[in-house]
Design a protein around this nucleic acid. Structure first.
Lengths: 127, 127
DNA sequence: TATGCTACTCTCTTTTAGTAACCATTGACC
DNA sequence: GGTCAATGGTTACTAAAAGAGAGTAGCATA
């Protein structure tokens, strides 16, 4: 099966699930954070502000399952666990960073558009 | 405020919300679909397989609010509504397509990684 | 009179995310 | 001996979001 045959627009294609995953809210941030190098669980939790332990664990497990990050446990007390992007995960960095950069570059325009939209819609309340 | 000052890793930064939005499951597919040109609501609903009317409406409203798509209503019976990417929305196409392409290119590897992961985890059931 | 078309909108149910408390392990401290 | 802290989780409960399905407007055609 070549690349051309995967179609995320088809809800039954496995690529749909994968696209859902990589386009996930926390995945983008976790992969972005790991771009800087290996990180401990607690470092990630701090860097990705607002993520709960549960969601961070879940996101990391999914990334691990998809072969995008490795999980290395050091048998110490207290325990230490490091997460690192695999080669495959590193390639994901680029599209994710592109998304992050696009967001930063278009923030002003978006905020302005929102302001205007909300202004106009406020003029048309429901009868 | 320059681009450098937006930080989506901070949960209170507005760029976080915007990144959440553009990294949204349906947004990626809707923008990808609209890349082919203007489309009617029903065409989008068909192309983006599995999206509910509710979610499609919501996604389009959000994109419209952010100034990424325009909504043109033709006063006919039955009604006709066309959605089209704005210039700003067109720039979003690139990072989204990058994500879509990455997904397609890495599908095989990911499926293989999942298979192996599930195999190993099955060997370690909870006591 | 009945039916169909389109682009929604509303209500209800199910799934998912978020919150907060708890766990195991060991050393330091009182 | 009991308590606390640190780390990387898990579990139970609740709030929010998504999905399913029916309903709506307004006119045209059968």
């Amino acid at each position: 099966m070549t690349v051309l045959e995967w179609d995320p627009y088809d809800r039954n294609c496995p690529s749909r699930q994968v696209l859902d995953r990589v386009g996930d809210r926390w995945t983008v941030l976790v992969v972005g954070a790991l771009a800087a190098g290996p990180m401990r669980f607690s470092e990630l939790a701090e860097r990705v502000d607002g993520v709960s332990q549960k969601m961070l664990t879940q996101t990391l497990r999914n990334l691990e399952r998809d072969g995008l990050v490795t999980r290395t446990m050091y048998a110490q007390i207290p325990p230490r666990v490091e997460y690192e992007l695999t080669d495959s995960g590193t390639t994901l960095q680029l599209p994710m960073k592109a998304l992050e950069d696009w967001t930063k570059e278009h923030m002003r325009g978006i905020m302005a558009a929102r302001y205007e939209y909300d202004l106009h819609k406020a003029e048309l309340p429901k009868p």
